[in-house]
Design a binder for these strands. Structure first.
Lengths: 209, 209
DNA sequence: GTCTATATGGGGATAGAC
DNA sequence: GTCTATCCCCATATAGAC
């Protein structure tokens, strides 16, 4: 059992610890404000040790950005096996919210990058545009079929994205809104239900059977 | 005409230029990532000149944070003169969106601060909680009267906030979604209509007359 | 009020001992 | 692989000439 085979490699274990720490640091401070010093400290190592494992601050950041994009590419697409708008949209909302709940810091890195101007996302926009255009076409089909009320499909998609992303970016705000209050914090399932209900009622035709 | 009376004071003019520059810098880089060097450059002055006018980076930041909070406190409250849910919510959505459109960078400072953990907002949360609780009560009254469908009022308010804030925080994303596309970018009025329609349909009772 | 110069601290990154 | 020591750059902020 050499150093390459115990666990999945000591090096990879260290890198995972580093990535975990970096996700927190980058999501809180942004790329410019994050320091390798702080990342090292969060990961429980010295700065020099960190620099032994990573190529540089920028490479680490880009790798993590790619992680969010890759995860979203998997999670966020409309499920082709489903045809009913209710089913497709419900699943989309559930998946996106689940990601915001389980990977809030990773989600926030994207937001932080967009706030900074999104220069590290140059290569990402075309693909994101394609994705939204495909969703738009499907939604417009639904509208033509009378399955959805007439609406601006592109804005509609962005609005769903906005609400679901909110629970990652503003988790601190949400928490404070339940602090020192009679009401117990909303559960994830409850939030999923409320968001889904709001969106579906907002887009279904008034003449729904 | 001494130096205190021309314009509204040279000092105040300089400070406004500094604040304008600082809003951009802080909103893009966050507090940790922003530099007084860059703020000075954006404001068209030397760093030493900047430090002659401001007390420090932190004081400048806190002043601007206070600006957003103060502006929102004015703009965001439910209009007591209105009683119909449709009218109150429409006006709220319009005002909040208008602020996102006209003061996007200032809006983003709040988001950036929340991402960073919101430590500079400690004194703000109690008041924000009060505001949301008051809105919550009114909405629950509407629900009791049958003017709104049953829903979680607190989450509902946060969802409206999320959608309207989106147009400030993710303006870059919105822009890219219309880049290289047949469709012309959505106008502000169009966005206001679409958001309002989505929210109102999402919360009004199905038996609406 | 505005500049040059500087004090002091921390940043990313590497060299080289162990 | 991990440490100490160090390089070089840039940060905030101030002192003091003009």
């Amino acid at each position: 059992m050499n150093s390459e085979t115990n666990g999945r490699g000591r090096r990879e274990q260290m890198l995972e610890a580093i990535r975990h720490a970096a996700i927190s640091e980058f999501s809180e401070k942004g790329f410019a404000g994050a320091t390798t010093q702080a990342i090292a400290q969060r990961a429980g190592m010295k700065k020099t040790q960190l620099h032994y494992y990573i190529q540089g601050k920028e490479e680490l950041y880009e790798e993590l950005l790619q992680r969010v994009l890759a995860a979203w590419a998997e999670i966020i697409r409309f499920d082709d096996a489903l045809t009913e708008p209710q089913a497709v949209l419900s699943r989309y909302i559930r998946n996106k919210l689940h990601f915001s709940f389980t990977q809030p810091a990773l989600s926030r890195i994207f937001t932080s990058e967009v706030l900074a101007g999104g220069h590290y996302l140059e290569k990402y926009w075309p693909q994101a545009r394609e994705n939204i255009l495909r969703k738009e076409q499907l939604i417009n089909q639904w509208i033509a079929q009378g399955a959805l009320r007439p609406l601006d499909a592109r804005l509609f998609i962005m609005h769903i994205w906005a609400i679901t992303q909110y629970y990652a970016d503003f988790a601190v705000q949400v928490k404070h809104m339940y602090h020192d209050t009679d009401a117990a914090p909303a559960t994830q399932e409850h939030i999923i239900r409320e968001v889904t209900e709001l969106v579906l009622r907002g887009c279904l035709p008034t003449t729904a059977s």
